[in-house]
Simulated assay, not measured.
Amino acid sequence: MVKTMPRMRLMVGVLLAPLMVAGCVSQSDYDALQAQNSQLKQQLAAQSAALAAERQQVGRLQGAIAYTVNSDLLFAPGSWEMRERASKSLPT
C-alpha cells in the first residue's frame, strides 16, 4: 500500500496536467482580446446612442405628420376658415 501512494499521485498529476495547461492563454492573446472587447463595448455604446436619437426623431416626425393630416382635415390648405364637415365633427 505504501508503494501505491506515490504511483497514485503520479497518475493524478499526469491526468490533471493537461487540464491545467489547456486553460492557459498567453498574456498577449489575453491583452488583444481585452482590447477588442473594449473596442466593441465602445462601438455598442455609440450605436445605442445613435439608435436612441433616431427613434426620438421618428417620434417627432410621426407627431408632425399627424398634426399636418389633422389640420388639413379641419382647414382647407391655405385657408383660415374651418370646413363645414370638420366643424360638425367637433364636440361643442
Score class of each variant (00 low, 15 high):
Ser79Leu: 02
Met8Val: 11
Pro18Ser: 01
Leu10Val: 12
Phe75Pro: 03
Leu10Glu: 12
Arg85Phe: 13
Gln36Met: 09
Leu16Arg: 04
Leu40Gln: 09
Val2Asn: 07
Ser48Cys: 02
Met11Lys: 11
Ala45His: 08
Gly13Val: 04
Gly59Asp: 05
Gln57Ala: 15
Gln42Ala: 14
Ser26Asp: 11
Leu19Ala: 02
Val14Leu: 03
Ala53His: 06
Pro77Trp: 00
Pro6Glu: 03
Ala64Gln: 10
Ser26Ile: 05
Tyr67Pro: 00
Ala49Cys: 01
Ser28Cys: 01
Gly23Glu: 00
Ala17Gln: 03
Gln34Ile: 14
Ala64Asp: 08
Ala45Arg: 06
Arg85Met: 09
Arg83Met: 09
Leu74Gly: 09
Leu90Cys: 08
Ala86Trp: 03
Leu10Gly: 09
Pro6Ser: 05
Arg85Cys: 00
Ala35Thr: 15
Met5Val: 15
Trp80Asn: 07
Leu73His: 11
Met5Trp: 11
Met20Trp: 07
Gln47Gly: 05
Val2Glu: 04
Arg85Ala: 08
Thr92Trp: 04
Ala66Trp: 03
Leu51Ser: 07
Ser48Glu: 06
Met82Val: 15
Asp72Glu: 08
Pro77Arg: 03
Gln39Lys: 11
Lys3Cys: 06
Ser89Asn: 10
Thr92Lys: 13
Lys41Trp: 05
Glu84Asn: 06
Ser87Pro: 02
Leu61Pro: 00
Met20Ile: 15
Leu40Trp: 10
Gln57Lys: 14
Ala53Phe: 00
Met5Ser: 02
Leu61Asn: 07
Gly13Asp: 05
Gly78Arg: 09
Arg85Val: 13
Ala46Ile: 08
Leu61Val: 06
Val14Met: 02
Met82Lys: 14
Gln42Val: 10
Trp80Cys: 06
Val69His: 02
Met11Asn: 06
Ser28His: 14
Thr4Cys: 00
Lys88Arg: 13
Val69Arg: 09
Leu16Ser: 03
Asn37Trp: 05
Glu54Asp: 06
Leu90Thr: 11
Arg9Pro: 00
Pro18Val: 07
Ala76Gly: 12
Gly23Trp: 07
Lys3Gly: 08
Val21Leu: 09
Leu33Asn: 15
Leu33Tyr: 01
Pro77Ser: 02
Tyr67Arg: 10
